[in-house]
Structure formats: structure tokens, C-alpha cells
């Protein structure tokens, strides 16, 4: 009780207070300095009319779908294959998870170098004889976002692999024995029995990846700085730019509030499942 009071204070004071403050400012006409002139939803209307913001959201959605999809597929395949009692399981696991330990800045810096148009991967793969379009993904406004996706999947697939592996391993091992005795092929066992058990793991992964996609900032700062042009602008960068450089606090806080709502929408199903389901079981 008493010991938690600093935390309670912090939670209610700082956390909720800040969120409320930010939301409040989004309803004002603040620019460089805050003023408390209430203007209703006009900042939000401004946002919808700002091309940069629309493009940011658009980019975030494309990025999010590709990122989640890529991580889920690769992470899942890795988990299933590693689960096959392979030798060197530890080694494989370690190799696929280490990018998760790196900062997004480090990841961004490396992949920016790898995608270098004249000296990077594309040139090296061409030299090896592989037909890769040697335009330079990063400098092409249509493909730059996918370069970000590749770097992110490299970083995040390991996490999904761990979550899926943990889900796979939580299945009663006697079920495997039972299917062997019944003569049910491996593949069918995965498809009809194991996979349906995995949906909590899939849900957890999707929510965590989705929230990461909404929040993406560091990677963009390191790899593309939003470019070429505004091809890789993202909402978080929009907020940061308008809070500091472009000094439009009202617009920035409105954007931040929208990000908050997006995260809450993603979080609710997961919270409902864990929190309320345990309640019901009690």
C-alpha cells in the first residue's frame, strides 16, 4: 500500500496526467508556445488535410502489414523447423534472435549500408550472378518502405520465433505419441491439432508487432530520415518534427493522440483475452 504510493503517484500523476495534457493541447491552437484557446477538432481536421500526415499513415499501414506478415511467416517457419528435434537447436536459435538485442539505430545503420546503391547488396548480388534489380531500393520512393520492412523483419522475426516455439512446446508431448501410435502423419498433426492451439501465440505476436509498427521512429531516423522525399515518413516522425523543428505543438499533439488511439485499439483484444479470461476462470 504505502510502498506502492510512489508508483501510484507516478501512474496517476505522470502517466495519465501527461496523456491528458497532450490530448488537451490537441484541442487548442498552440503553435510554438502553448496557448489554451480551445478550437475543438480543428487541429484534427488540419491533420487530415496535411499531405505529409496522410502519407505517414499510409506508409505506416503498408509497413505494418508487410512487417507483421513477414515476421509471422518467417518466425513461424523457423519455430516449426527448429521444433523438429534438429541438432544444433541452440545455435540456430541464437543466430536468429541476436538482431533483437540490437538497437534500431544499429539495425538502421547496417541496413542503410547494405542497401547502398553503388557498393551495397544489390551490386554484390549482381556480381554473384543473381538477377536483382540494381536500382537501389532505398533511393526509389516506391521501394524504400520495403527496405525498411526487410531490416525490421531481420530484427523482429526472432522474437516471433521464440513466441511460437514456446507455444508449440506447450502442447502436451503425449499428443505426439498418440498421433504416432495412430499413424497420423507429422504434417497433419501440425495442421489439424497443433496449429489451432497456437492462436494465443499468434495474437500476442500480432499485437506486439502491430504496436511496434505504430511506434516506429528510430529505424526511420537511422535508415532513411523519412526519404526519399516523404516516401518513408511515419506518424512518430511527423509528431517529432512538428514538436521541435516545425514548431506546431497543436498539430503534433493531435497526431500523437491519434497514435495513442491506434495503440489502444490494437491492445484491447489482447487485454480482453488475458485479463477478462482469467477473471472468468476465477
Amino acid at each position: 500500500m504505502l510502498a506502492m504510493s510512489p508508483t501510484a503517484l507516478f501512474v496517476f500523476g505522470v502517466y495519465i496526467g501527461c496523456i491528458v495534457w497532450t490530448c488537451a493541447i490537441s484541442f487548442t491552437s498552440s503553435r510554438i508556445l502553448p496557448n489554451y484557446e480551445f478550437v475543438g477538432l480543428s487541429q484534427y481536421y488540419r491533420l487530415m488535410a496535411t499531405e505529409r500526415w496522410i502519407v505517414s499513415v499510409h506508409n505506416m499501414v503498408i509497413y505494418g502489414i508487410a512487417y507483421i506478415g513477414g515476421c509471422l511467416i518467417i518466425g513461424f517457419l523457423l519455430a516449426v523447423f527448429i521444433d523438429q528435434k534438429v541438432r544444433f537447436e541452440n545455435t540456430f536459435r541464437t543466430i536468429h534472435l541476436f538482431p533483437y538485442a540490437l538497437s534500431f539505430i544499429v539495425t538502421g545503420a547496417v541496413w542503410q549500408w547494405l542497401f547502398n546503391p553503388t557498393m551495397g547488396l544489390e551490386r554484390a548480388l549482381n556480381e554473384l550472378g543473381l538477377p536483382v534489380p540494381g536500382i537501389g531500393m532505398l533511393s526509389n520512393p516506391h521501394t524504400a518502405i520495403y527496405a525498411l520492412v526487410i531490416a525490421s523483419v531481420w530484427q523482429g522475426a526472432g522474437l516471433v520465433m521464440i513466441i511460437m516455439l514456446s507455444g508449440l512446446r506447450s502442447v502436451d508431448p503425449d499428443i505426439w505419441k498418440a498421433t504416432r501410435v495412430e499413424g497420423i502423419p507429422h504434417f497433419q498433426t501440425y495442421l489439424r491439432i497443433i496449429l489451432p492451439e497456437l492462436h494465443p501465440a499468434v495474437l500476442t505476436s500480432v499485437v506486439m508487432l502491430g504496436i511496434a509498427a505504430v511506434k516506429i521512429y528510430d529505424l526511420v531516423a537511422a535508415m532513411t530520415q523519412g526519404g526519399p522525399g516523404i516516401a518513408t515518413e511515419v506518424p512518430a516522425k511527423f509528431v517529432m518534427d512538428h514538436l521541435f523543428g516545425r514548431a506546431n505543438v497543436g498539430l503534433a499533439t493531435a497526431a500523437a493522440t491519434l497514435m495513442l488511439i491506434a495503440v489502444l485499439c490494437l491492445l484491447t483484444p489482447l487485454l480482453y483475452l488475458t485479463y477478462f479470461r482469467t477473471r472468468r476462470q476465477q
Partner: peptide, 14 residues
């Protein structure tokens, strides 16, 4: 718990 997931941008200005 919810706070753990919030985007930092929402807290920066305050």
C-alpha cells in the same frame, strides 16, 4: 500494463 505499451510521442511535450 497499458502504460507500458504507449507510444512515447504522447508523453514528450508534457
Amino acid at each position: 500494463l497499458i502504460g507500458a505499451f504507449m507510444p512515447l510521442q504522447v508523453f514528450i511535450y508534457p
